[in-house]
Nucleic acid binder design. Structure first.
Length: 589
RNA sequence: GCGCCGGUAGCUCAGUGGAUAGAGCAUCGGAUUUCUAAUCCGACGGUCGGGGGUUCGAGUCCCCCCCGGCGUGCCA
C-alpha cells in the first residue's frame, strides 16, 4: 500500500500551527505541550487552550502572568487568529472555516475509512470471546462477552491490526459427564434428535436429583472419565450434544451478525495436555498435592493453579495453557485478549503467571478483558441475584432478540406512512430491534454490573441504539432529498452557526476516541461518543425544523453546499461508529 | 481474612488531573403547514459513599474506613 493510500487522517493544520508556535515560545518538549493542549469547556472561551500551571512551576512565575505574556507575544496568522489570556489559561481562537474545511474534506475523502489508522499493521491480535458451554441455550448473560469481543475485534481491525476471533467452545469437562450419566439413567431422550432444550432439561433434572443422592455425582465423574478415556459410547453422545449446540449457536450469532475465525474448542487441545503436564512436572513447576497436580504460586501471593484433579481428569486450566501455547505458535500474537467475565480475574492472573513461569516471554501479551456480571431482580424478594443455569433459571438470548425485533416491528407499523419506499420493514425491524439490544449493552462501561431489564434493553427512545440509527436515517434522508453530489470543494465559510462548529469539533475527535477505545478495551467509549454526536446533530436538525434558514437544504446555494458536506461527514462518522459496535445503520426508518 | 470490581441527580449512566460536574429515564411545561416527533426546547433535580492526603488545581491520583458485588484448590 502506498503511503498516500493509508487510511490515516492527516494532522489538523490549525492545531499543528498552535503546537509549532508553542514549541518555540515555551520551554517544554513538544510531547508535553501536546499533552497539555486541550479544548476549553465552552466554545466561547476559545477553540484551544493551554493551561499555564505546568509552565508556572517550570518558570517559577505566576501562571496568569505567563498566559498574558504569551498572549501578548502571539502573532496572528491565517490559521490561528488570536490568543488571549483568561487568568492562568491561554486561549486560542482559530480560523474556523479553515479547520472546518480540513476536517470535512478529510472525512469526505476517507469515508468508511475515516477514523482508521495503520498503527497495528503486521500485528496479530487474538480475541477469545463468547466461548459458551455446549448443551445449554445461549442466555442473555452470554451477550456481553460476544458483543464486547466482536466490537474490540472491529476496533483493533480499524487500527490496522490483523484480528483472529476465537470461539473457545466449552465442550469438555465434568458437566458433560453429568449429561452422559443423565442420558444413561433416564433413557427417555433420543440422542440423535435431542434438542438443546432437552439437553438442558436433562442436565437440570440430573443436578436436582444429585442434590438428594450424592452417588450420582460419582456416576457423573465416572462418565467423564470414560469420555476422557475415549470410550466410544460416551464419545458418540458427546458429539451429538456438540453438533446440536453449535447449530443453535450459529443461528443466534447470525442474528447478531457475529462471526469467528476459529471455533477451536476446549477438546481441540486435549491431545496437547499430556505433553504439557509432562513438561511441567519435569521442570519442577508442577507437583503433586492432595492427590492432585498443582503449580504452587504462594511466592506470588496467588492460590495454586490446578492442572489435574485427584480423579486423574484434567480441567479447563490445563487446556487453557495448551490453548495459549497453541495460539502463540500459530499466530505469534501481539496481544491475546480474553473477553471473559470479571469474576475470573484471579484465574487469569494465575494463568498468566504460570505461562510466565514456564518461560514464555509472551505471557505479558496475554490479557484478561473482564466485564461486570449480569444480574436479575428477583420478582418475589426484589433482591439481585445471578442467573443459574443449573437451576434452569435463564432468559434465552434468542427470546430477548426476538422481542426486540417484534417491538421494532410494531413501531414500524405505527409509522408506516413515514417509511419511504425502498425500505424492507422486516429487515428494518431486525436492524432496530437487535441494534437496541446491542447498543444498550455496549453503552455501559464494561466493568459495571448490569441488572437485566426488558424495558431498558428494548427501549427505542433517549440514549439508545435506535436514537443513533434514527439520526443516521435522517441524515440519509437529507442526502436523498438533496439529490446532488456532495462537493468536497464546497467553501466552508458559510458554516457560521455555533452548532455547526460544535459538530466539526466532534467529528475531529472521532479518530482519537477510536484509539482511546482500543487502549482501554472499551467499546462504550464509541457508543457514548455516538450519543454525543447524535445529540448535537439532532439539536441542529431540529433548529432547522423551526427556522427555514437553518435547514441544510436552504435557499442559499453556497450555504447548502457547505452544510451538505458537513451533514455527509456526520453521516459517515455515525455509520463508522455503529460498524465498530456491530450495530446496523439503516438508511430509512 | 485477603484480592479484584463498583458507589456521581429519585432511577440508569457519561465524565481516563484543569475553568460553572453532564446526559437519558421519570415528573412538570412547551414545540409538528416545514430536511422523518424513534425528535427537539425548557423546568425540576447533586455534601460526586465518608474521612484524610498529594497538587497551583481532585469526581478523577494515594491512604484509611463504610456499603454492594464477585473471587479466594478438585466446575468453566
Amino acid at each position: 500500500m502506498r503511503a498516500s493510500e493509508d487510511p490515516v487522517s492527516e494532522a489538523n493544520p490549525v492545531r499543528e500551527e498552535i503546537l509549532r508556535w508553542l514549541a518555540e515560545s515555551v520551554p517544554l518538549e513538544r510531547q508535553s505541550i501536546e499533552a497539555l493542549l486541550d479544548v476549553p469547556p465552552s466554545a466561547q472561551m476559545g477553540d484551544y487552550v493551554l493551561p499555564c500551571f505546568a509552565l508556572a512551576s517550570e518558570l517559577k512565575r505566576p501562571p496568569a502572568e505567563i498566559a498574558s505574556e504569551l498572549a501578548g507575544g502571539f502573532v496572528p496568522n491565517d490559521r490561528v487568529l488570536r490568543a488571549a489570556a483568561a487568568g492562568p489559561y491561554l486561549n486560542f481562537f482559530v480560523n474556523r472555516p479553515l479547520m472546518t474545511s480540513h476536517v470535512l474534506r478529510q472525512v469526505h475523502e476517507l469515508g468508511a475509512d475515516y477514523g482508521k489508522a495503520d498503527s497495528g499493521a503486521g500485528k496479530n491480535v487474538v480475541i477469545d470471546y463468547s466461548s459458551p458451554n455446549i448443551a445449554k441455550h445461549l442466555g442473555v448473560h452470554h451477550l456481553r462477552s460476544a458483543l464486547i469481543g466482536r466490537s474490540l475485534y472491529r476496533i483493533f481491525e480499524a487500527l490496522g491490526y490483523n484480528c483472529v476471533g476465537i470461539n473457545h467452545l466449552g465442550d469438555w469437562g465434568t458437566s458433560f459427564g453429568k449429561l452422559i450419566a443423565a442420558f444413561e439413567r433416564y433413557g427417555d431422550v433420543e440422542a440423535e434428535s435431542a434438542t438443546v432444550s432437552q439437553l438442558q432439561e436433562l442436565y437440570v433434572r440430573f443436578s436436582r436429583e444429585a442434590d438428594q443422592r450424592p452417588e450420582l455425582q460419582d456416576q457423573a465423574r465416572r462418565a467423564f472419565q470414560r469420555l476422557e478415556g475415549g470410550e466410544a459410547g460416551a464419545t458418540e453422545l458427546w458429539k451429538r450434544f456438540k453438533a446440536t449446540s453449535v447449530t443453535e449457536f450459529e443461528r443466534i450469532y447470525r442474528m447478531l451478525g457475529i462471526s469467528f475465525d476459529s471455533y477451536a474448542p476446549e477438546s481441540f487441545y486435549l491431545e496437547m495436555t499430556d505433553e504439557v503436564l509432562r513438561r511441567m512436572k519435569q521442570s519442577g513447576l508442577a507437583r503433586e498435592s492432595e492427590d492432585a497436580l498443582i503449580v504452587p504460586l504462594d511466592d506470588y501471593g496467588l492460590p495454586p493453579y490446578m492442572l489435574r484433579k485427584a480423579d486423574e481428569t484434567t480441567l479447563y486450566a490445563t487446556r487453557d495453557i495448551c490453548a495459549a501455547e497453541y495460539r502463540w505458535r500459530k499466530y505469534r500474537f501481539h496481544l491475546a485478549l480474553y473477553v471473559v467475565g470479571g469474576e475470573q480475574e484471579l484465574y487469569f492472573r494465575q494463568l498468566k503467571k504460570v505461562l510466565e513461569l514456564m518461560g514464555h516471554q509472551w505471557a505479558e501479551r496475554v490479557e484478561h478483558v473482564g466485564f461486570g456480571l449480569l444480574k436479575f431482580r428477583d420478582a418475589e424478594t426484589g433482591l439481585l441475584r445471578t442467573g443459574s443455569t443449573r437451576q434452569g433459571e435463564m432468559i434465552p438470548l434468542e427470546e430477548v432478540l426476538r422481542s426486540g425485533v417484534e417491538k421494532a416491528r410494531q413501531k414500524i407499523r405505527e409509522n408506516l406512512d413515514k417509511l419511504e419506499g425502498g425500505a424492507d420493514p422486516d429487515e428494518l425491524a431486525a436492524q432496530v430491534g437487535i441494534g437496541a439490544v446491542v447498543f444498550s449493552d455496549l453503552s455501559v462501561k464494561r466493568a459495571k454490573d448490569v441488572v437485566f431489564d426488558w424495558d431498558r434493553m428494548l427501549d427505542f427512545e433517549g440514549d439508545t441504539g435506535p436514537y443513533v440509527q434514527y439520526a443516521h436515517a435522517r441524515l440519509c434522508s437529507i442526502m436523498r432529498k438533496a439529490g446532488e453530489e456532495v462537493s468536497p470543494e464546497a467553501d466552508c465559510e458559510p458554516l457560521q452557526l455555533p452548532e455547526e462548529w460544535a459538530l466539526v469539533r466532534l467529528l475531529e475527535r472521532f479518530p482519537s476516541r477510536l484509539r482511546a477505545a482500543a487502549e482501554g478495551r472499551e467499546p462504550s467509549m464509541i457508543a457514548n461518543y455516538l450519543l454525543e454526536l447524535c445529540a448535537q446533530f439532532s439539536a441542529y436538525y431540529s433548529a432547522g425544523m423551526r427556522e427555514a434558514q437553518r435547514r441544510v437544504l436552504c435557499g442559499d446555494e453556497a450555504t447548502r453546499a457547505a452544510r451538505l458536506l458537513l451533514v455527509s461527514a456526520v453521516r459517515h462518522t455515525i455509520r463508522n461508529g455503529l460498524a465498530l459496535l456491530g450495530v446496523a445503520a439503516p438508511e430509512r426508518m
